[in-house]
Simulated assay, not measured.
Amino acid sequence: MKAVTIQTDQSETDQALADLEAQLRTVPGQPDMAFVFYGCDHDADLLNSWFQRHLPEVPVMGGSSSGGMMGAQAMGGVHSIGVMLFFDPDGDFGTGAADKGGDPAVAALSALDQALIDADCEGLLPDLIWVYQSPGAEEAVIDALVERVGADCPIFGGSAADNDVSGAWSQIAAGQVLTNGVAVGVFFPSGEIGFSFQGGYEPTGQKGVIETGAGNGSDPARLIAQIDGQSAARLYNDWTDGAIAAPLATGGSVLAETTMYPLGVEMGLVNGVQQYKLVHPETVTDGGALTLFANLENGTEVHCMTGERDKLTTRAGRVVAQAAANLTCDRPTAALIVYCGGCRLAVGEAVSDVHDAVAEALPSQTAFLGTFTFGEQGMLVNRNLHANLMISAVVFGG
């Protein structure tokens, strides 16, 4: 497998597409699959039409990204668009898409079936499934896919994002543009795949057992009413030395205040190091509960985690290096990176260091494309799951 990345920072969609078209003319041959990530202010319908016009036979998938994207050429700005073109005539690839509607699990299986038909691989087990979906009910999507393909097939991807959690996100796949959908891509490449899924946070030593519950219309699995029998929000505020003191009194969003203090769930050891599923507290309710961006089971023990901006910028390179180390071939040829949009906002202008860390972890001239998401999906300690504030890398060998 080989790959080429093209990208643009033009803020107007028609000008950006003209820029991409000029770059596309310099790329020899017909790609076998394409990924696209873009700033949420771009017109996704125009972008989708552009792919239908210029790459009509190529499976395409992707979606909006918080604050732009990063590519092999450079760290893109808030209006950037990046495209990864895969070339692997001996492999098979396909995409599918469906609106989540009232049943995200059914939508996920419909999109998977479409993707397998598109790849001409019905009934076969992919080497990798890649998902890009709207935020919400990600666990239902992952669980449905795992039930269909088994626990050993890696499922990676992310939840489409915008710049301010206003819902201005979108997904593109199989010739469709969706705002509440799930896009599924299947990979049967001729070469190898290496992957890694990690967070950049450490436990503070504070921990407790949660009680989930309903409130404010939230999914019970995404609301913590109590921790160790105490108000979840008040105990969390104590754990974090007052990180949510102001919202605690009024209620409301705490995404910015909690980015450096996610909750963690132990998943098991890798090389003697405990791995954690990270969950991002989203709001404080009137009753002192915490709503979340991922599901937790009642009775789960959670750890208060903490992070540092410098570590969040360097961690991406380590994740990519670990994914590449899982290959047995001489060198990687391409990489797809998912980096949490909340972490991207937390590191601010140092996001350019995230790009540089990824580039330094790969051999020179390796094509890569990265997106900033509002939820990350990947395989952690041999289990496919949805989490927050995580980083993933899928690296392809020739």
Rank of each mutant, 00 (worst) to 15 (best):
D238K: 12
T204V: 12
T26I: 03
Q198W: 10
T285Y: 05
A161H: 04
H386P: 01
Q275D: 01
G348L: 13
Q274K: 12
Q7D: 07
T179D: 14
E138R: 08
R331M: 08
L55Y: 00
A387Q: 06
G348P: 07
A107G: 00
L178I: 06
S134Y: 02
A249R: 14
D120N: 12
S392C: 03
Q73G: 12
A173N: 10
S65T: 13
H355W: 15
C329Y: 00
M260K: 13
V279Q: 02
K100G: 03
Q73V: 07
S170T: 13
W50Y: 10
F188M: 06
V58D: 04
G397N: 08
I227D: 01
G341T: 12
I142Y: 04
G287A: 07
G71P: 03
P262D: 13
D43F: 04
V351I: 15
T373V: 12
M267S: 07
S231E: 09
T300P: 05
I224V: 15
H355K: 14
L255N: 05
L278V: 09
D241N: 13
D353F: 13
V351N: 14
D164N: 14
V395P: 08
L327Y: 07
L55D: 03
M70C: 12
C304F: 04
R25K: 15
G378P: 08
A44Y: 02
V394D: 03
V273I: 14
P89T: 14
L112G: 10
G175V: 06
P203N: 11
I227E: 01
A44R: 05
D310M: 12
F293L: 13
T285P: 01
Q275E: 14
V279L: 09
D99C: 02
S159I: 11
Q15H: 08
R222I: 04
V351D: 06
W239L: 03
G194V: 02
W50T: 03
F37Q: 08
D118G: 09
L336W: 11
A16N: 04
P262W: 13
G67D: 01
G342R: 06
S231T: 12
G167N: 14
K207H: 15
E360N: 11
L178G: 12
G370P: 04
F156Y: 15
T179K: 14
T371H: 08
Q230V: 06
L17P: 01
E257M: 07
A321G: 06
A22S: 11
V209K: 10
G342Q: 12
V78S: 15
E360F: 03
D113A: 11
D103K: 04
V319R: 04
A324T: 08
E301Y: 06
A249K: 10
N237E: 07
D238A: 05
T95S: 12
D219M: 02
C329V: 11
L369A: 10
G123C: 11
V27D: 01
I224L: 10
L124E: 15
V83L: 07
G375N: 09
S64K: 09
D356I: 01
M390W: 07
L109Y: 00
S364T: 07
A16R: 04
L296P: 05
E308Y: 08
D118R: 10
Q226N: 11
Q365K: 09
